[in-house]
Structure formats: C-alpha cells, structure tokens
Design a protein around this nucleic acid. Sequence first.
DNA 1: CGAATAGTGTCTCTCAGACACTATTAT
DNA 2: ATAATAGTGTCTGAGAGACACTATTCG
Lengths: 214, 214
Amino acid sequence: MTDYKDSSGKRLTDYPRPSVAVDTAVLTVSDGQLCVALIETGGGRHRLPGTFLHEAETLADAVRRSLKDKAGIRGLAPTQLHVFDALDRDDRGWVLSVAHSVVVRAASLVGVSVRPVDDATGLAYDHDEIVRLAVARLRDDYRAGPDPFGLLGEHFTLNELQRLHEAIDSKTPRRDTFRRSMVSKLEETGALQIGTVGKPARLFRRIALRDSLR
Amino acid sequence: MTDYKDSSGKRLTDYPRPSVAVDTAVLTVSDGQLCVALIETGGGRHRLPGTFLHEAETLADAVRRSLKDKAGIRGLAPTQLHVFDALDRDDRGWVLSVAHSVVVRAASLVGVSVRPVDDATGLAYDHDEIVRLAVARLRDDYRAGPDPFGLLGEHFTLNELQRLHEAIDSKTPRRDTFRRSMVSKLEETGALQIGTVGKPARLFRRIALRDSLR
DNA sequence: CGAATAGTGTCTCTCAGACACTATTAT
DNA sequence: ATAATAGTGTCTGAGAGACACTATTCG
C-alpha cells in the first residue's frame, strides 16, 4: 500500500509531509464558571493538552489518547474546530495543529489545572484562539438546546439546567423565558426533587444526546 | 530547525507523518442555479479539485494553487470546512484531507465541468460530504447578509440580489420581506438602474465584504 | 404563619410573512 | 392606457422578554 504510486508516478511518501498535532480545549463547568484545562510548560507559560498524531490513528483517537494521561476520561466525542497552519507557529518545525474541543464533567478532571476561560489568555502557540473558538462553539450549542453534552446527570430540575447554562453563557435568559424555551425540548420523568426548600421541582430528562461530528 | 528535538528527545521528523491533501468545493451560481466544479477522473467518476500540500505551504495557498490550473482564479479566500481522517479513505495510503470551499463568479470558471449541487452525488472519496458541508455553510452565510462573497458586481439592484439568494437557497423569503431584511445592511449609491422596463430600481452597494477565516 | 422556590398568566415589543396598494417607467 | 417592475403601508401571528401573580413545600 505504501508503494502505491499516484497519477504522476510518485509515491505518496515522496511528497513532503508536515507533522500533524492535535490540541484540545477541555471545557468544564466548575463552581459556576466555564473553565478550561491547562498544562504548565517550562517557563511559566501555559498550553492546552495536545499530542502528535501517531501512525494510523484518527484525530479523535489522538485527542482521546492525549487526554487519557491527564485524567481518566472515557467516551469522549471530540469536536473538530480548525486547522492552524501558519508556517511559523511552531519553532520546532512544520507542524499543522488540528484544534479540538471536548466537554467533560468537572469531577473527571483530576490532577489538572483548571482555569476560568476568561483568565485563560497568554497561552502558548495559538491556544488563545483555540479557546475562543471552543467557547464560541459551546455557547452556540447550549443556546440551541438543553445541556447538549450531558454535563448534568440523567435527571435534573430546570433550576439546575439554568445554572449550568448561565455558567456557560451569562446572557442566558431569565427564569420564565428560559423555562419556556427548554421544556419543549425535555421529557418529564414524573418524579420530583426531594429534600429541598420550597415547592419541589419536577425532574426532567434530555430527549437525546447530540452526536459528535459536525 | 528540522533537527530541533522535542521534550522526549525526538526529532519532529521521527514521528510518522500523514500525507496532507486539500480538496475544495468550488461553488458558483450559473444560470440561476448553485453549482459546483467537478473534475472527471478515470473510470467515469467525478471528484473535487485537490492537491497535496507542498513543503512550507499553507492550506489556503495549496487551495489557490490547485485551482489556478483549473481556472484563472485570483484573490480567493478559501473557507476551511473539516478534516477528513478516516484511515481507509484513500487506498493509496494514509492521507488527511482538509476540505475547503471557495465561491467564485461563474465567468471565472473556464474549461471546468460545472454541475448543480443537487446532481453532484456519487463523487469519489468523501467528496459528497464536502459538497454538503460547503453548501450548508454557504446557505448560512447568505442567510446572514447580502451577498457576503461579492458574487454581484459593485452595484446591484435588490432584484438582482434576490435572484442570487434564491439560486443559493430556494427558501429565500419573498420580495417585500427580503427587501426589508436586506436594505439595512446595504448602502444606497443614489444611482438608478437604466434601460429596463418598469420603474427604475435603485442601485445598492455592499457595506463591507466578509473576511475569510472563521 | 413566613420564607423560599416552582410554575404560569398575560402584556408588550419586535419581527417575519402575507397582501394589497401606490409609484414610476417603457411601449 | 397597459404592462411591467419598484417600493411601501399595514395586518397578522409567533415568539422573546418582563412582570407579577399563584402554587407548594419547609420550618
């Protein structure tokens, strides 16, 4: 297979090939704030987790591999964001970086530095830009429907849902508008929340989880 | 630079590297229809124009280079769509393809086969999917504002603008609604169209062209 | 009871869409 | 005048947002 020749009689491997990396904005909501996981490099700078693509590996697999070390994360569906290809973006050589984002529960992130996205500036390479893209995409996704990445558990109240959406986007509408825009996209479980002050809230369930590729 | 070693003491070139290609959906409006440029391969199949990335070349430059042959096209701002990375997508070997789209005037496309996007199915590789993505993105862009890619000349009437938008998306609203949604995003030139039947139409101008990266 | 939270009735404003009317040209 | 196209007044309905009211629990 590797000595297959193309239309101009060249082997594929005769073409110059860039190194290909993946860099991933790992987003989570912690303490009511939208946060991103950062790694400390030498020199006090921070960067996103990433790795070089291995042989015969898909981009999504490389993302998952690069994150397995940092935290025991499973079942991730990375979202592809953009390819960064500036020739001088990495002084080690010619490297294409395929930016991704993943969304995880805060509890999954152990032993990683987590910082609110607004404070995550001055990162290495073009990682500031990746965070911007990842956050914008996430806000679009959450504007479109209730917790599309399943950060909440199986059942949740509208209050819990709204607090999550507010952490992700402060411009989330207020209680009544939020409720009316979400109920139609949720399923009622019939159960009520217990052990709380005030009128017990109904528990809802997502109708379906979003799938990965877009 | 190429013998710079990374944190684990490896040269960048010690990592396996995929071949990287670009494939581009060249979209145009011809005869009131949204069309895409196709290339005939051997075996009666069709594909999108593409090429392998050359050494020290950006993706956008590779796209422009791959299209310069097919048609004298200049000043293009390719839009990056998605990286296709299935391991078996190219039987010549391990190839990542970065899908792009560009929008050109029909007159620019000489000596290329142009086909309405709805008929452009059964293409080689994952090119059907690329066309789908490119068309969806283009429709989103045109829904957001008047002729964002400048397919019309410098000045145009609202009728001309609407016919263009209708070619791109048949669900374009009708005359009055279309006008009201667009005028606020246009500048009046003060001039009128001449040599036509009926009340002469005002000529408008785009306020600004969109820029490329997203 | 009061405090606290859940849930809803309803008003307003905006905007898209539809329809019909007026305006201005050529023939 | 008639045909043809441009442009606008206005009604309707849907939906977002704001406000205030009712509902149900705990202590």
